[in-house]
Structure formats: C-alpha cells, structure tokens
C-alpha cells in the first residue's frame, strides 16, 4: 500500500449537495477518502450567494459568499467544493474582493457587523481541479483497482467551472475532465458541447427553453457514441437526467442516456461499493456502467 502525503482541504458541500444531490456529496467524500485526501467540512457554512441570489441582491450575495471565505481563512486551507455553482460564486467573490478595493471594504464592513472578517488569503478550488492537478495521473492510477475497458463517456464540464476566469483550463474547450476519464480507462468522446449551458433554473421556470438546451447536449453526446454523460455540477446532473422523457418528446428523438457525476465514475474504478457512491439515487440506469469495467 502506498502512503502518500496527506493532502488536507476545507470542504464546502453546498445546499444542493446536502439535499437533492446527496449522491455527489457522498461520492466526493468517499473518493477523497480512498485517495488519501483529508476533507474537513467547513463548520457552519452558509449559502454561497448563488446566481439566483446575485440576480436580486448584489452586495448581500457577496457578503454571503465572503462569510464562507472567512470561515475557511480561520482553517488556513484551500476551500474545495464539488458544486460548480458554489465554486463560481465563492471564486468570483474572492477575485472581485481582490480587484475592487471599494467592494472589499464594503464586504468586510458587513462581515465585521457579524463579528467576522476576511483578509483574502483563501484559494477557492473545484474538486475536479484538485483531483487532476494536486493528485495527478500517477497517484490516481495507483488507486484504480478495476479500470473501465474503454467505456465511451461524454465529458460535460458545464459553464461555471472554467468560465468566466478560465484559470483551471480553457474557458470553452477544457480537457481537464477528459484527462481524468482517460486515466480511469474510459474513452472521452470528442464533445464540442462540453461547456454549453444546460439552462440552469430555466428547466423549471421556462421548460420550453431548458428542454431544448438539454436536448442539444444529450443528442450531441449520443451522436458521438457516448454510453453515458459525466457531469461536475448538481444542476447540470439533475437537468440532464431527470427530464429525459420530456426532452425526448420535444426533440422528437430518443434522449435517454445514463448521467453520472465524474466522482461516481471515478469511484466505480476505485472499487467503491455502489452504496458508497449513492448510485441508487441516480434517475438513469447505472448497471451497464459498472459492468463496463475490464476484467
């Protein structure tokens, strides 16, 4: 057994991962455990100040975000989240506070009203970035017990991991998820829709718009022969997996395809049991994916 240097992070689950998308939280924690990472949940974290909040109240959204940054600063570790939406909100607040002195001052004043402060020392990271760039190919491959035998996967990154800053990878055609998938024996298909928007909230509020956006993504994946889609965001996951019957009707073509979090795909090859990846939570069938591992 290899004894790697233990990497310790402050972990931010986010509201979605403790409710409708628990499978992402469970698979993230278990994958991290097997890979020897120490994920210490941020004590008493709050809403990241998400897109929906930002669209109504700007400064308050930054303050919500910054309270989490302040909590992470006390821990003195990188703040890691698996939710793409939380990642963007926290990261954007961090960058804007750094670049805009007036905003920084306002936000710090508000934090101090509640007995906290943030000086700007935290680094906000996405789980995909941490796995690929901190652990890397060698370390992940060492832990793979049964790799896939060329399972064709559409790597769907979504909007909010590489945009707007493009600091992890190319903002439009990132290959970060492709890399990870290839390390675990999967074959990432050429997928130009990798950062095209799934519509986010529009799936609920204006389904006629959301269904078409999702339909285009799924059909592009199927067109390239993908056997499943890999996601890195709870909202992408739910939009792609939960409405496939409606989407098929709208597009006039079969849009059914298994959709899994990249942490679940990774976990399957690390030898984690289905329950440790909450595969039962998925609304699309995952049996064929588990069976796609080489002997």
């Amino acid at each position: 057994m290899i004894a790697p240097v233990k990497k310790t992070y402050a972990y931010y689950p986010g509201c979605s991962l403790i409710a409708t998308n628990k499978a992402y939280d469970i698979s993230t924690r278990n994958v991290a455990r097997v890979l020897g990472m120490d994920m210490i949940e941020l004590e008493d974290w709050n809403c990241c100040g998400a897109t929906a909040y930002m669209a109504i109240r700007e400064k308050r959204s930054f303050v919500l975000s910054a309270r989490n940054l302040a909590l992470a600063e006390k821990q003195g570790r990188d703040l890691v989240t698996a939710c793409a939406g939380c990642y963007l909100s926290l990261h954007k607040t961090n960058v804007y506070m750094d670049e805009e002195p007036k905003m920084r001052e306002d936000v710090r004043k508000a934090l101090k009203a509640g007995g906290m402060d943030y000086t700007g020392s935290v680094k906000v990271r996405h789980m995909l970035d941490v796995l690929v760039n901190d652990l890397g190919e060698e370390e992940i491959k060492q832990h793979v017990v049964r790799a896939f035998g060329g399972l064709k996967v559409a790597p769907y990154c979504g909007c909010q991991i590489t945009r707007p800053f493009g600091d992890i990878d190319d903002p439009e055609f990132p290959v970060i998820m492709h890399k990870l998938l290839s390390w675990i024996g999967a074959e990432p298909v050429p997928f130009l829709m990798t950062t095209k928007c799934c519509g986010g909230m529009l799936m609920v509020t204006q389904p006629e718009v959301g269904e078409e956006l999702v339909g285009r993504i799924i059909l592009a994946a199927k067109d390239k022969g993908a056997e499943c889609i890999s996601t890195a965001c709870p909202l992408c996951q739910i939009n792609l997996e939960a409405y496939q019957a409606k989407v098929s009707r709208r597009m006039g073509k079969d849009c059914s395809i298994p959709v899994l979090y990249f942490t679940q795909l990774l976990g399957i090859t690390l030898g984690l049991e289905p329950r440790n990846l909450a595969l039962r939570d998925n609304l699309t069938p995952t049996e064929a994916i588990i069976a796609a591992r080489s002997a």
């Binding site: 628990k22 008493d44 709050n46 400064k59 309270r67 004043k109 009203a113 939570d281």
Partner: peptide, 28 residues
Amino acid sequence: RGRMPFLPHGIKGRNDLKKMIQAATEGA
C-alpha cells in the same frame, strides 16, 4: 430515491449572518 428534502438545515450563526445582511443592505 430520498432526494426530496422537506426539512431545512438552518445554520448556527443565523443571527450574526442576519446582522451582516442588514449591514450590507444599509450600505447598498
């Protein structure tokens, strides 16, 4: 699939957070 939560998970620092939100609203 146990994915429809009914009970909210409130945070402990709710009162302090309210003060922060209040301060941000006044400054807006």
